[in-house]
């Protein structure tokens, strides 16, 4: 089942069809939520709430678009709500339990640790640009800022990451 078919089925009231979307995107969404909340429990709560928000808002979703960038805006809003709660404990938790596994090498983990050391906003931009491959226009739309702001923030985030990586190498 592809995303568009699952979304059409969900709109007819088929809750089970939503499972396809949750299982397909939950791991990625959790990493993104951890980038923004830096707290494992908050990330799980925000991701769960964002999926529920997405199910409720599917009627407004244009199936010609990709699901994840649309969902990401909901996820981001939930993460900010979680983050604004005073009791939230700040952890560095993109990799709560880093392990080399299938498809993940020691070099990959080093890169994730370097991203982990960035501020949440900078880490978010690096991941969305370099790993998700979003364009400046997509980033501007998801982040709700002008294209020029995306460029300057991305520039600064890359400088910072480059310094971290260079520092680690030396």
């Amino acid at each position: 089942m592809d995303d568009a078919a699952a979304i059409r089925a969900c709109r007819t009231g088929n809750v089970d069809a939503f499972r396809h979307l949750v299982e397909r995107y939950q791991a990625r969404a959790m990493v993104h939520a951890r980038l923004l909340t830096r707290n494992d429990a908050d990330a799980a709560d925000a991701t769960q709430e964002a999926f529920v928000d997405a199910f409720r808002s599917l009627a407004a979703f244009d199936v010609a678009r990709q699901f994840y960038p649309w969902f990401y805006v909901l996820l981001r809003n939930r993460c900010f709500k979680q983050r604004s709660r005073a009791a939230t404990k700040w952890e560095s938790a993109i990799l709560p339990d880093p392990r080399i596994g299938p498809g993940i090498s020691a070099e990959h983990l080093d890169l994730w640790r370097a991203i982990d050391r960035l501020e949440p906003d900078a880490a978010e931009l690096i991941v969305l640009k370099h790993i998700e491959g979003w364009t400046y226009a997509e980033l501007a739309s998801a982040l709700g800022v002008p294209r020029g702001t995306v460029m300057s923030r991305l520039f600064a985030a890359r400088q910072r990451l480059s310094r971290i990586l260079t520092g680690e190498r030396s």
């Binding site: 299982e23 939950q26 199910f55 498809g103 990959h108 983990l109 370099h130």
Partner: peptide, 24 residues
């Protein structure tokens, strides 16, 4: 840096949110 980051796999998040999401 761009070469290094391109296609960087996501760490295994080890989550299964479906039951909680479905319940809600």
């Amino acid at each position: 840096m761009t070469r290094q980051l391109q296609g960087l796999p996501y760490p295994d998040a080890r989550v299964d949110l479906w039951m909680a999401v479905e319940g809600q």
